[in-house]
Structure formats: structure tokens, C-alpha cells
Design a protein around this nucleic acid. Structure first.
Lengths: 276, 276
DNA sequence: GGGGGATTGCAACATTTGTTCTATGTATGT
DNA sequence: ACATACATAGAACAAATGTTGCAATCCCCC
């Protein structure tokens, strides 16, 4: 078996033969895919030290892929590097392209849709960073870190965000149950939420009525409510102690979840730092 | 005089000192500027032979530019190569901005965490656009639009993405049930998936075993499987007909969901366009 | 529990690498 | 025409590289 001559084929070979490799060689494989530049330029010794393996393991890895030695494998990474640096479209070219799909003039089809989403997603994230007040963020983190139980609520398109929050906060060994309506029970547990707890609620328009009502109810009962919603006119803005407003200024006919998801992950990590 | 550290400075040094160089060194200089890639990767001996000089001349050339030896000079060409390959379309535009984020808000605390997430999220999205093959995307859309039933599968941190896919595809009036394990039933419905259906599976490391096994099973039974996973070594890469690999090149110790979520939304919209 | 195969660590090996040294050649200026 | 300074070529050297062989270890199957 001769070794692959280009990087894509190499990736294919790797996925195919990965399961049959020894644990050590698997380690090397993951490293190779995650640090292709190092693989291209570093020496065997340095790479081996970086991975925590003997240089011989590198050679065996290359041989397992059909190359005569490590050099043959490295050649693939090197050619990839020079090719990537060669087909460098001019900067002018790229600027036009980004403007094009920013403006929505990119040719249609699935690829166009993806470019559009990526562009809007980036805009979304930039706006997120701009609009979130550091004070709010700090307050929310403190609140969450100190709450007895964090109840997480979000339905329909907001549910993925809510689920993630519950999942990840639980990983931090916090009590963070998800308020869902499995079996039709939703309002009942909500009544048990107290001022020492916290309600983390996610909703965008049009705001699911049940969700809004639970938030209002809790807020009225002095439960600290943290909301993730779209703008200042949201009913959640009036029914929360801290409200993250993620404005939507995209070309899409419906809400993107990129920014809310990002905020959710950042929140969780910040809470984790606060605790540990 | 210390040698220049980056390629542009090196070019400046060269133009300045070129007239005072010996004819042979001038030859080397022109070659170096005309074949920067060879200068980055080849050895002294091969380069010297290519130019028609002795290896020692290469060393003297480097020393004439202020480097200790040829290796120091070559380092400049190498870093140029990796930088050019990093500034690939997409990354270029926002790199400065990301650096700004990092520089401006690196200090710890919730705000720092958020800016870090935003920066990594943007990088993520750009890599998404770069790595997704348009052909794969088109094929996936066609497959999904034509499937009798689309089964959606994803657990733990991948569940939000899976849920969203199921939710949004259902909004398009497609049959897109979520394969969950409520009540412990997961394997049974999976057996009913046939070649006219499709399985849309999301999983990242470490890949939930149940999920992987269902995907493998379906793939073996000729069910079209579309996977969203992290890299070429994922078991899903081997158990799918179409595989979207969302590489993870962030500073975070765990997976970000920004890019997968974005891909999911783009997929849904593209399917919608295909239908309508 | 023990035997056999695969896997890994270690060290020695031959080769190649970058560098340096010296001798030869070459141009320049007096 | 000669001396001097410089440029070049070639060989020699030490360091580092990629590679291989062997022994120790782990793990699985009988």
C-alpha cells in the first residue's frame, strides 16, 4: 500500500485505518490533524516530545499509513502548506466576496445560504459583544453561582439554548433542572421556585405565552430572573432582574441561534471560573 | 546587525544591501525572492545545487544579512509560509479584530470570557465556511429534501443541535422525528429506519457510544447517513455517507456549538429553498 | 494462570544536515 | 607587474536527523 499523495486522501486513509491503530498511533493521528503546520515543519524529535512519544513511534505511524518513513508523510503536509499559501486569492477579491454575501447578492443555492449564515453569524457575534453590558454579565454570573437551584426555561426555538444551559450547568455540579412540559406538567414545579433560587429563561418572539407567564410569576415573587431575549420590548425585559438583549439585525427571515448559544456557553464558563 | 524577523523586513534588508553584495550572493538573493517556498522547505545542499553554487555560499548569504547561519534565514521563510496559509480566505478579514478583542479584553472575569468566546466563535464560523465542501452541502440538501422520514439523533452536548434540526425541519412540514431515549427506548425505532429515509446524526468527542452504534448500524443497512462531527477521525466519518467535519481550532478546553448550530440552520433553510 | 502477539520504550546506527576551514582563483589599485 | 583584499570552491567536521533493531511490557485469548 503506497501512502496518500495529497492531504485529502491522507485524511481519508486516516479515517479508514484509525480504528485499527494502536492507542499511541491514534494519539499521533489526532495530533497530526490538529497541528498540520507543526507536522509540516517540525522535526521528528520535537514533534515526538510534543506528543509525549518516542521518535520511533512517529516513523511507525508513517509506515502504518503506507509511507516508507516519516519523511514521506511529512512531504504531504508540506505540499499542503505551499498549496494553501499559493491559491491565495487577492485581498481585493475576498473583500468583494464578503461584501457580496453581506448584501445578499451571493449566488443562490446551498453554498450561498451557508455563506449568508456565516456572515450573519459573525455580525451577530460582534453585536453580542457590543451590546452585553459587563456589569450585567458579572451580576448574572454571581447570581447563578450563588443560587440554590437554577431553573432553566425555554421552549421551541429557544429550547436548544435552554437545554444546553441546563446540561452544562449540571456538569459544573450545580442544580440546574430544565423546566419542560413533558407530561403536561410545567406550571406546578414553577410555583416552588423561591427567592434563593434563580430562573434562567430564554425566549424570542413570538414569545411562548407559557414561558412568559412563568417568568412574570417568578419575577413578581422576587425570584431572581435572568432573561435571554431579543430586545427591550420583549415581555421578558419587564419580567426579569437581568436581561440580555440580543438584537437581531440579519438578513434572515428568522432568528439565528448563534449569538444566544455563544452567550450561553460564555455564561457557563464564567460561572465555572467563579466557582473554581 | 541582527537578521530580520519577518519576511517584509527581510525584503527591505535585501533591497538595501543588494548592491554591495558579490555577484554570487546577488544570484542567491534573486533566487530567494523568486522561490520563497523552496527557500522555506529545501535543504541547503539542494538549494545550492539548484542555484549552481556551493552550500557555503548559502551560509555566507545568510550571514551577510545578519543571521547566524542559514537556519535563521530559513526560519523567516517558514513563518511566512504558515502565516500565509493561516490568512486563508475568511480568516484574513477578522484576524485584526480578533486580536483587538484579545488585546482589549484579555483580562479575566466574565467579560473576558465572553470576548474570548466571541472571538473563537468568529474563527469557528470562518473555518466552517472554508471546510464545508459545496458538493457535500448540495448532496445533503438533496438527500434531506427527498427523504421519506428524517430521523435526527444527537445526545448530550450535541442534543441542542439535534433538537433544533428536528424542530425546524418539522416546521417545513417534513417528517423529522427526534430519536431520544425518553423512557429508555432508543434502539427499537432505529431499527425501522430504511433506505428511503435518512439519518441526521450529530456527535462530537467523546462520541456517545449509543449514538455511534446507531449510526453504524444504519450505515451498514444502506440508510443514507448525514453526520455532523468534529474531524476525520470521528467514528461517524466511517459511518456516514456525507460527513461535515467541523474542526475545532479554538482556545477553549471544550467544544463550541456556534459553528454546528450555524450549519444546522443553514441546512434547514437550504432544504426549505429546495422544496419551495 | 500462563503463553503468544502486539505494542511500546530505549538506544545505537548510518545518513544527512548546516557550518567552518583552508586553498585557490580573481579582480583592483599602485 | 606585483601585492593585497576579496570572492569562491571544495573538502572536512560536528551536530542533528530519520531510521532500525532489540528488549521490556502490556494485553488478550486459550
Amino acid at each position: 500500500m503506497p501512502g496518500a499523495r495529497n492531504f485529502d486522501d491522507l485524511k481519508g486513509d486516516l479515517t479508514r485505518s484509525y480504528p485499527g491503530l494502536s492507542p499511541q498511533l491514534q494519539n499521533i493521528a489526532t495530533f497530526a490533524l490538529e497541528h498540520p503546520q507543526d507536522m509540516a515543519l517540525d522535526t521528528v524529535a520535537r514533534l515526538a516530545k510534543g506528543i509525549g512519544v518516542q521518535p520511533s513511534a512517529m516513523v511507525r505511524f508513517a509506515q502504518a499509513l503506507g509511507y516508507e518513513g516519516f519523511s514521506g508523510l511529512q512531504r504531504v503536509f508540506r505540499t499542503r502548506l505551499v498549496e494553501r499559501s499559493n491559491n491565495h486569492p487577492g485581498l481585493r477579491n475576498y473583500r468583494e466576496r464578503i461584501e457580496a454575501f453581506r448584501a445578499g447578492h451571493e449566488r443562490p443555492g446551498p453554498r450561498g445560504v451557508l455563506s449568508q449564515f456565516v456572515a450573519d453569524g459573525i455580525t451577530s457575534l460582534e453585536q453580542l459583544l457590543e451590546h452585553v453590558a459587563p456589569a450585567d454579565l458579572a451580576a448574572a454570573v454571581k447570581l447563578l453561582a450563588g443560587a440554590k437551584t437554577i431553573y432553566v426555561l425555554g421552549h421551541r426555538r429557544s429550547f436548544p439554548v435552554a437545554y444546553y444551559l441546563s446540561y452544562a450547568l449540571t456538569q459544573l455540579e450545580l442544580r440546574a433542572p430544565l423546566l419542560d412540559s413533558v407530561g403536561g406538567m410545567l406550571r406546578e414545579p414553577a410555583r416552588l421556585i423561591g427567592p434563593k433560587d434563580a430562573l434562567l429563561v430564554v425566549s424570542f418572539r413570538n414569545y411562548t405565552p407559557e414561558v412568559v407567564e412563568i417568568a412574570k410569576d417568578c419575577h413578581a415573587r422576587k425570584v431572581p430572573v435572568i432573561a435571554i431575549t431579543d430586545n427591550a420590548l420583549s415581555p421578558l425585559a419587564r419580567a426579569s432582574r437581568i436581561c440580555f438583549q440580543i438584537e437581531e439585525k440579519t438578513s434572515m427571515p428568522f432568528r439565528m441561534l448563534v449569538a444566544p448559544m455563544c452567550l450561553a456557553q460564555a455564561l457557563v464558563v464564567a460561572v465555572g471560573e467563579q466557582l473554581g
